[in-house]
């Protein structure tokens, strides 16, 4: 099962290496890893997605806590959370195909951010599912190039994720609407 961790670390040289090296050393496979600044200066936040079981997830959390630059770890898998991925997709489309692609982009609430004679670049944000599905329908037109950020995630509500997650094995989990709240997923 996929587990999503939010990992808060000191923003210092070599920290990403320490975290990724831990996953390698302990034979966990990283599905995706993103890192960026947080609201607190000097603290970075990683979102790491790993395929493992419940015990593996607990051990991983314990291992992460043993890294000195690691300040906090939240397993937000069970928490009500919002997860997003951003993708840039370059599609070869001219003539009539181009119109079709533009219609699809509309339906998916994606955006065209670059146009050239032979291709379009589409930007889309959403759950991995939504992006996968957009990718599927674009494929017949010729996807030339794609880049994705990997998942970033955040617990809903005002509580920190650990508290939100703690009693939640039984607690109902709010449905993730998957895209912009106004439109839901397609």
């Amino acid at each position: 099962m996929l587990h999503t961790f939010a990992v808060y670390v000191d923003n210092k040289p070599g920290v990403l290496n320490r975290v990724s090296s831990l996953f390698r050393r302990r034979a966990f496979n990283i599905e995706s890893l993103t890192v960026g600044h947080t609201e607190t200066p000097g603290v970075s936040r990683m979102t790491v997605v790993v395929d493992t079981d419940e015990y593996g997830a607990r051990r991983l959390e314990a291992h992460l806590y043993k890294l000195v630059p690691c300040k906090r770890v939240e397993n937000i898998t069970a928490a009500a959370s919002i997860a997003r991925d951003l993708a840039l997709i370059k599609v070869a489309a001219t003539g009539e195909a181009r119109t079709h692609v533009m219609q699809l982009v509309d339906v998916y609430r994606a955006r065209i951010v670059d146009v050239s004679l032979e291709s379009l670049v589409i930007e889309t944000t959403g759950t991995e599912d939504k992006i996968d599905s957009l990718l599927e329908v674009l494929r017949p037109y010729g996807v030339v190039e794609m880049v994705r950020t990997g998942r970033v995630a955040m617990a809903r509500g005002t509580l920190p994720a650990r508290r939100a997650a703690a009693p939640s094995p039984q607690a109902p989990v709010a449905a993730d609407t998957g895209g912009d709240v106004s439109h839901g997923s397609v």
């Binding site: 015990y55 607990r58 051990r59 314990a62 806590y65 043993k66």
Partner: peptide, 17 residues
Amino acid sequence: IDRAELNKNVRVDVAIA
């Protein structure tokens, strides 16, 4: 004292870090 040792090789009924 090392939580990462719990439930690593052997599944246990009560794990105390």
